[in-house]
Design a protein around this nucleic acid. Structure first.
Length: 200
DNA sequence: AACAAAGACAACCGCGAGTTC
DNA sequence: GGAACTCGCGGTTGTCTTTGT
């Protein structure tokens, strides 16, 4: 049997792309009633025209009641950077050290925020040290970052930590940053409140 | 006000590991 | 023992939003 078949079905019935609120509700209702199970069967049993894989991802990254959404705090940023230095791109491993955060969220955070800063810092560094450190400044660490930072000698990481660490005294309250500042997200807490009220 | 570029996030894909039969 | 199947991970792409011109 072709492994790909279970992942990328040719079935035109299989939906792709952004999840609708209705699909989210179906998935939440099904899991709250039956629990998590074999995802492919779950998708079918729940009546969702999605792959099991898609359902799993949606549940883990977005719908789970313990998922924390919203800004990553300075404290978390520091922790991510420390753990990335230790383990490299082991996002799921890093995510386990950050309760409520998903590997996908951390991965995206790293790519969009931290790599940008590294790139900038690296450019500044290479500009100032271009004559001295040609071989260091021209490494490909920004493009992949696939290895633990401990293997890198670039001083840009040192500079990276400072802006975050200086923010530490002003770490915002996590509960407020996750709810009040994200009006464009509909709250999963609402769903779970509804579930509780419905006695499900 | 309209458009383009950049940023941020959600979702998909391919692959390897683990499990079941 | 090995084929079939599922799960989980990391990389990549697509889409929506925000910002700048």
């Amino acid at each position: 049997m072709d492994k790909k078949q279970c992942n990328t079905s040719q079935d035109p019935e299989v939906r792709k792309g952004p999840w609708t609120m209705e699909e989210d509700l179906i998935l939440i209702n099904y899991i709250s009633n039956h629990g998590e199970g074999v995802w492919n069967s779950l998708a079918k049993a729940a009546g969702l025209k999605r792959t099991g894989k898609s359902c799993r991802l949606r549940w883990l990254n977005y719908l789970r009641p313990d998922v924390r959404r919203g800004n990553i705090t300075a404290e978390e940023q520091l922790l991510i950077m420390e753990l990335h230095a230790k383990w490299g791109n082991r996002w799921s491993k890093i995510a386990k050290q950050l309760p409520g955060r998903t590997d996908n969220e951390i991965k995206n955070f790293w790519r969009t925020r931290i790599q940008k800063h590294i790139k900038q810092a690296d450019q500044q560094q290479s500009n100032s040290n271009s004559e001295i450190n040609d071989h260091q400044a021209s490494t490909s660490q920004v493009s992949t970052m696939a290895e633990p930072m401990e293997t890198y000698s670039s001083p840009c990481y040192q500079g990276m930590l400072e802006p975050f660490s200086t923010q530490l005294p002003n770490i915002p309250d996590q509960s407020s940053c996750c709810t009040n500042d994200n009006n464009n997200y509909w709250s999963m807490e609402d769903f779970w409140s509804m579930q509780l009220l419905n006695g499900d």
